[in-house]
Design a binder for these strands. Structure first.
Ligand code: FES
Ligand code: FES
Lengths: 132, 132
DNA sequence: ACAAATGATACAAATGTGGTATCATTAAGC
DNA sequence: GCTTAATGATACCACATTTGTATCATTTGT
């Protein structure tokens, strides 16, 4: 089980790099060179970050990406949610046929508590901590 | 993200049922009927539980499965480990190329703490709690 | 006009999950 | 011993997800 997937990891690294560049526009090719992320894959990731409002993009020559928020306003969880969907360790609710069983519900409460802990820990871990 | 996969869930349900039968031998067909788990899939799961020492199997007519341990000696984590492998939220160690980066290491520490918490919570949650 | 960048989108390989099918082996009970 | 009801072992398969790749259109600074 992975907690953080590859695209989230790439996204974090890209965000860190772009954040260090401050107001300077960072073009994707620079990220590819420095971070060794496969180019088309990175492009897709950057587009996602743009659509989700974490980056602002500039098209055309001299274009690229800049941060829209301060790094201390972005949490690991914010990035995870973009690439891995809403945090939901308890998928049991979906499979209706599993639910008549009480035992799963006791377990469900346990898992809910675990989930709350994880969400709170990752939600308070800001991108800024990864830069300094 | 799921914390518990389908086979682990099926395994937990099967174990609960078998545990309730105490020393009585429970044949797979009975489990199929009562728990509505696809037959060949359940068979595979029961074989895993047998190989990992949580169940003892009796072959031949009148055969089936019985528990080898008291339900308060088996944790959710024990079952998860059989079907989902060792708990390892931090897969980063494997991908060597990610590691020169300090930021991941700080994050890694955070994830390690999260993992310890999850392992401790699930390791102390015993099968017995699901039965009563 | 040209070059350098992003936008959009479709495709593809590798892996993981959930499930199926088959045949051999064992043991109880007549 | 024969039948029957059970497990053991193993190989296969369909689908979804992950991790990418490829292509072409569009925008913009010089
Ligand atoms: S919520 Fe699924 S069993 Fe209770
Ligand atoms: S352990 Fe992978 S970056 Fe530190």
């Amino acid at each position: 089980m992975k907690l953080i997937t590859r695209d989230t990891d790439y996204a974090l690294r890209a965000l860190c790099f772009i954040a260090k560049n401050k107001d300077k526009v960072t073009p994707a090719p620079e990220l590819v060179a420095k971070l060794k992320i496969p180019r088309p894959f990175l492009r897709k990731i950057l587009q996602s970050l743009d659509k989700n409002g974490l980056l602002k993009s500039y098209k055309g020559k001299g274009g690229g990406f800049v941060m829209t928020l301060k790094p201390n306003k972005i949490s690991i969880l914010d990035v995870m949610r973009i690439f891995q969907g809403a945090f939901n360790l308890n998928e049991c609710l979906l499979n209706k046929h599993l639910c008549p069983d009480i035992r799963v519900c006791i377990l469900k409460k346990k898992i809910d508590r675990i989930e709350k802990y994880v969400v709170s820990e990752l939600g308070s871990f800001k991108l800024a901590y990864l830069i300094e």
